[in-house]
């Protein structure tokens, strides 16, 4: 019996090791190459052959990634904040009120999530052009709002529904207005849900590629990280050291963010998406 459990543990340990290798290898390889002065001249080994920070220096100065990071941060901040607020209001409406067309609206929210964004590039391009917001970050934020809203509404709906109505009623009995109740009862209780949804809005804003490419066009000073990296790769296709350094720089903020919200995220997913 003991023997069996030992071999089982060994198998499990091997599986964990394999899994860790698969999940972490690309990130490791990216970071390792980014510190390697020899990364562009072939003859790779698993460890950097000649440690250097020059790649980073190059990317942040000549490569312009300081600007790209700032642009992405701005876009992400506004996308996350605005979509969080708008989605929460909408989620309260569908979770707490009964009204005509409620089911219809829910179905619509569910359905528009499935619309392929690629299909909307052409009309949204024309639309953003008509608003004269091409080449600007504002145009991008507006578009990203539309993409992150349906999922955020859907997820937050679950959280709001999970808050016991009794708590709300208790607040009313204490003489609170609806707005007061919203702020002091509902909001704190759905905060974990807001964190989970903000992760998704953040990913949209930070990673999105096709719209950034189309809507920002030639305005390199407004490029987000994804499109900045594409441009950088266009010039330095064979300089893998700097390309990997740039990749690392734009990945690190997301990784930190993800690992920090890990626990909240899984709860949020179950509460929101699964309860669907």
């Amino acid at each position: 019996m003991r023997h069996r459990s030992l071999s089982r543990r060994l198998v499990k340990a091997a599986l964990v090791a394999l899994l860790l290798a698969f999940t972490l290898f690309p990130a490791y390889w990216m970071i390792s190459s980014s510190f390697d002065a020899q990364a562009s001249s072939g003859g790779q080994s698993l460890l950097p052959q000649e440690f250097t920070l020059a790649n980073y220096q190059y990317v942040l100065t000549e490569g312009g990634f300081g600007t790209f990071l700032r642009n992405s941060a701005v876009v992400a901040f506004f996308t996350v904040t605005i979509s969080g607020i708008v989605a929460l209001l909408a989620a309260v409406a569908v979770a707490r009120f009964r009204f005509k067309f409620r089911t219809g609206i829910l179905i619509m929210v569910l359905t528009v999530q499935m619309v392929p964004l690629e299909a909307l590039v052409i009309p949204l391009f024309v639309q953003v052009r008509d608003l004269q917001l091409l080449n600007s970050l504002v145009g991008l934020v507006i578009v990203y709002l539309a993409f992150s809203l349906p999922f955020a509404i859907w997820m937050l709906r679950g959280f709001v529904a999970a808050v016991p109505v009794e708590l709300e009623e208790a607040a009313y009995i204490d003489g609170a207005s609806w707005g007061r109740m919203f702020r002091s009862v509902l909001l704190p209780l759905v905060a974990p849900g807001l964190v989970a949804t903000s992760v998704f809005s953040f990913i949209v804003a930070w990673n999105e590629f096709i719209f950034a490419m189309t809507l920002l066009g030639g305005a390199a000073e407004n490029y987000t990280v994804a499109i900045g990296l594409k441009q950088f790769f266009g010039v330095h296709a064979n300089d893998w050291g700097p390309v990997m350094a740039a990749s690392t720089i734009i990945t690190i903020p997301v990784m930190v963010f993800f690992v920090l919200v890990q626990g909240k995220l899984s709860n949020g997913l179950v509460a929101g998406a699964v309860k669907g």
């Binding site: 391009f125 953003v128 052009r129 091409l134 080449n135 189309t214 066009g217 030639g218 305005a219 390199a220 441009q231 266009g234 010039v235």
Partner: peptide, 23 residues
């Protein structure tokens, strides 16, 4: 002056023309 890569420049121009964001 904005420097544009030859690779992909045609698409960039076309998109800019469509969006009236040409230089």
């Amino acid at each position: 002056v904005e420097y544009v890569q030859w690779a992909g420049a045609h698409d960039r121009f076309v998109t800019a023309i469509a969006g009236s964001t040409t230089p």
